[in-house]
Design a protein around this nucleic acid. Structure first.
Lengths: 241, 241
DNA sequence: ACAAAAGTGTTTGTGTTACACCCATGC
DNA sequence: GCATGGGTGTAACACAAACACTTTTGT
């Protein structure tokens, strides 16, 4: 049984993950919907075992939810306002699900544990969306990819978390060369450009973009891609290092 | 009595502060020395009250230690490795101070509380060093400014914390225009330049630096400073906004 | 007069942005 | 042959680095 109150977790400290994927020229975020009446969405989250480092905890949570190891992962901010936990959603979720919770001592205990004030460490992850097999947890009704422009309204400050994660991603993209984590093994230059345009939400000049990316000296040019399209076949590239 | 185990704090979560000051062309960090035998230095730290936001907690800790309000303050990273707390220093400090601790049930309890595994949120602060009146806490023997190039070896990962804080400061300095928090109300351009040189540990060309700073349009030029030096009197500037 | 440091202007170089042109391919 | 998208080169521009010269002030 995975009831959090019975596990050896650090109290009142959680990890929330913003998992970015890229598909059809859009940046997506993986968001579970909670298995309670009332339409509640919440970022995938988890807790930290005693004896477990926070980065390892994040990696574990990510692996549980996506099925893939060695994900690119980085802290971006701690969310610890006093009011963030006891916001209206708690009252609503309890009110709407009283039957489910009220007659069960076990659920009461869980509810008590989980409704205390929490400080949460925000991590963002970059994954190849086609490698991910979303695994909903016991308390999830579903877990799906949502375009970042069209996210559901989530509980507490989770929408704000996504905004902050995106901001951090933008700041680190050129610096740390992490964007390629969102792409498959091989890709065309156009796909890289469309990825960047999705992340920064603005267009780039085609030739200048190519020059800038190639000048990074991190891409290996492979054979040409065969396309059935009515144009010159583009090169395929692979990220190295 | 301020014994942490009896306060209503969040468990196993702490805040460590890297307080930067600037003096005599050098960047300094405020570091307390613990009132135990064995020469232990540790960054100023504290805990978070239930019902208190983490930023407010950091602000409170800072105010307690420096005597000034409204300090520039920013999170820079969470330190949560599993091994960071139970490092050798705990054994050493207990071994060297057995008499102080052994015969006292109260101290035992405190020791137990404080020697558990902790996750710590790192904050860095920028202060006008001449406004600070360092306040050592009950467990400190002293609290002094140390040049960043010549810090004592601190407990756990605190030296690493300072390195990370400095890195974050460098990244944010131009971006957020925060450097002026380290200077007094008015200053000359040369002082700004020396500050930047201290932070980045590299020289800047005088005229180009002046151009770059003035082009930010955040400085107000005041009357000339009267100096007894054998040179042209420099302008004084004030930071605005 | 001279040294020391401040103030300001000009030239050089580098990198980004904009524009232009040619190539391969399917209809 | 023409529309479509890929690949590459060059001119224009902006910004930062390097260089040069003048001004003020105390000894």
């Amino acid at each position: 049984m995975h009831s959090p109150s019975e596990q050896n977790y650090i109290q009142q400290l959680s990890i929330d993950c913003v998992i970015f994927g890229y598909q059809q020229k859009q940046l997506n975020v993986l968001v579970p919907k909670l298995d309670f009446r009332g339409d509640f969405w919440a970022l995938p989250s988890g807790f930290i075992f005693q004896g477990e480092g926070i980065d390892q905890a994040a990696q574990r949570i990510l692996e549980e939810r996506t099925g893939i190891k060695d994900i690119y992962l980085d802290q971006f901010r701690v969310f610890g306002d006093a009011e963030r936990s006891n916001s209206s959603f708690l009252e609503r979720i309890i009110h709407l699900n009283e039957d489910k919770l009220g007659d069960n001592r076990f659920n009461r205990k869980e509810l008590e544990w989980i409704t205390r004030r929490f400080v949460s460490i925000g991590y963002y992850a970059l994954v190849d969306i086609y490698k991910v097999i979303p695994q909903k947890s016991e308390i999830d009704e579903s877990m799906e990819w949502y375009p970042i422009r069209d996210l559901p309204t989530m509980i507490m400050d989770h929408n704000e978390m996504v905004a902050q994660a995106l901001e951090t991603l933008r700041l680190n993209l050129d610096q740390k060369l992490i964007g390629f984590n969102l792409l498959p093994e091989t890709f065309t230059m156009k796909e890289v450009q469309e990825l960047y345009e999705a992340i920064y939400d603005k267009p780039f000049a085609r030739n200048n973009f190519q020059k800038k990316i190639l000048d990074l000296n991190v891409l290996e040019r492979l054979e040409k891609k065969f396309t059935g399209a009515a144009n010159k076949a583009p090169f395929l590239y692979r990220f190295q290092r």
